[in-house]
Design a protein around this nucleic acid. Structure first.
Lengths: 253, 253
DNA sequence: CTAGTTGACTGGCCCGACCAGTCTAGTCGC
DNA sequence: GCGACTAGACTGGTCGGGCCAGTCAACTAG
């Protein structure tokens, strides 16, 4: 007849209210929350409680507190950092292998290209061309710049595909793969050469996209990822990945 | 010459240390952390700081504090809840549409089946059969039981595919889609009928998997998701999804 | 009009206290 | 001897007060 009432901590209810206000858009990024001593009056709780709530919101990437700022805690612009962190934690805890990450990445990335090729507007594909050029230019500016340009390119792909999820996934997966690779990096081979090779691959895929050849772009993208990482996997993992690489209907070595 | 030192809050360093201990596996699930008053001695900080650190770790889903528990805060078993939450938050903030979620889900799910069909062991596929039966039995036990059985089935698929990521994604996507659908639910149609229909679809896909027909299973899975949700989308969204549904090489209406 | 100072705020952190929940050891009744 | 009960020693949850360092803005001296 009656429902059991699980005791809810005070700070949790504070979190709930503020979080809802942010997620619903009632409070927008760059807005400021009232100061802690003010919040503790409006919520009628101690400062400890307010602070714990703010810590939680901060760890969720929703707000940021700066010591001494008279404007109060700042509501942060949306970011996928939290998603990246939880994905990264999951990867460590579940001991995700490079094979698993690449299988997933191949699936997601190739279909993003396919969607972009089939549904992207001419302007969006033109933007891809620009991003591609920026990427090639970034080779000279070092690895970080290149990584950023690469990210921007994939963001454009997701835009052309008309699906933000593909962009987010690519970013997150790239980050996690990066973390995993750092441990098994091959003594910093010729990165310059790798970047150029990467650009060549991207060019090929982009060409297929331009021709509105969705399947071709997807296939090229699959091979691109596979070839890039194949050397870091043992034979049986390579096979498990290559199953996804070849076009449907044919299974490779 | 010298690096700028951004001041790191005390509680953050506490979080770092404990988090690293957990993520690295040095502290295992169901282990207990020392009590707050004890931690505050070992870290040489006030209880406030310890509590803020614990709140953060709690919001990360790594530990749980129960009032009065003499054993201290508990290290939680791994869970994808945090990933689900951040994904859910992202979906709200970025206003992800049903179309976007389904496009992604179709891509991921179909390839999971494909991998399962091509690489799953006979035992794993047998387990799929068992899970399928449990799902059919669960129809009689209500929606919640059915949802659980459905989840378990997809977990088996990911297992057969040999990739935990596909299972995680399916779970997370399912949850987010569920949240989105709650708002546009069609007056609780005949859920019983829908469940039966869902089982029928799953059976078809499973049959293809049994025959090791990866492409067939993938194709059936794509259609299955599409058909299930098509009515909830406007025409142009339907088209953007159907592009992914048809086998490569052919594009549908 | 600018450069520097000052003061009123901010959040970060600590302390001590109190309450309510939880487990356990010991007690009481059988 | 054994089970039910109780009391106590913990636990975390919350509060208030206090101090410090950082930040910003208004004000002041040049």
């Amino acid at each position: 007849m009656f429902e059991p009432v699980r005791s809810v901590r005070a700070y949790e209810r504070v979190v709930e209210q503020i979080e809802e206000a942010i997620l619903s858009g009632r409070i927008k990024p760059h807005d400021r929350l009232p100061a802690e001593r003010e919040l503790m009056v409006t919520f009628d709780v101690g400062r400890t409680t307010i602070r714990e709530a703010l810590r939680v919101l901060q760890s969720k990437g929703l707000v940021r507190s700066r010591s001494g700022d008279p404007n109060g805690p700042e509501v942060l612009p949306h970011s996928i950092d939290r998603l990246r962190e939880s994905m990264s934690a999951l990867a460590r805890l579940e001991h995700l292998t490079l094979r698993e990450l690449l299988q997933f990445r191949i699936v997601v990335e190739s279909q993003a290209y396919r969607l972009a090729a089939l549904l992207g507007t001419d302007e969006q594909i033109e933007a891809l061309e620009t991003a591609m050029a920026a990427m090639e230019a970034a080779i000279e500016e070092g690895e970080d710049a290149f990584a950023r340009a690469d990210l921007a390119f994939h963001e454009c792909v997701a835009l052309a595909a008309g699906n933000k999820l593909f962009g987010v996934s690519t970013t997150v997966l790239g980050s996690v793969v990066g973390e995993l690779m750092r441990s098994k990096i091959t003594a910093a081979a010729d990165r310059r050469q790798q970047m150029r090779e990467s650009c060549r691959r991207h060019r090929q895929v982009l060409a297929a996209v331009r021709e509105r050849d969705g399947d071709g772009a997807a296939s090229l993208a699959r091979h691109s990822v596979y070839d890039y990482y194949a050397e870091y996997m043992v034979v049986e993992d390579r096979h498990a990945v290559s199953v996804l690489v070849e076009d449907e209907g044919t299974v490779a070595t």
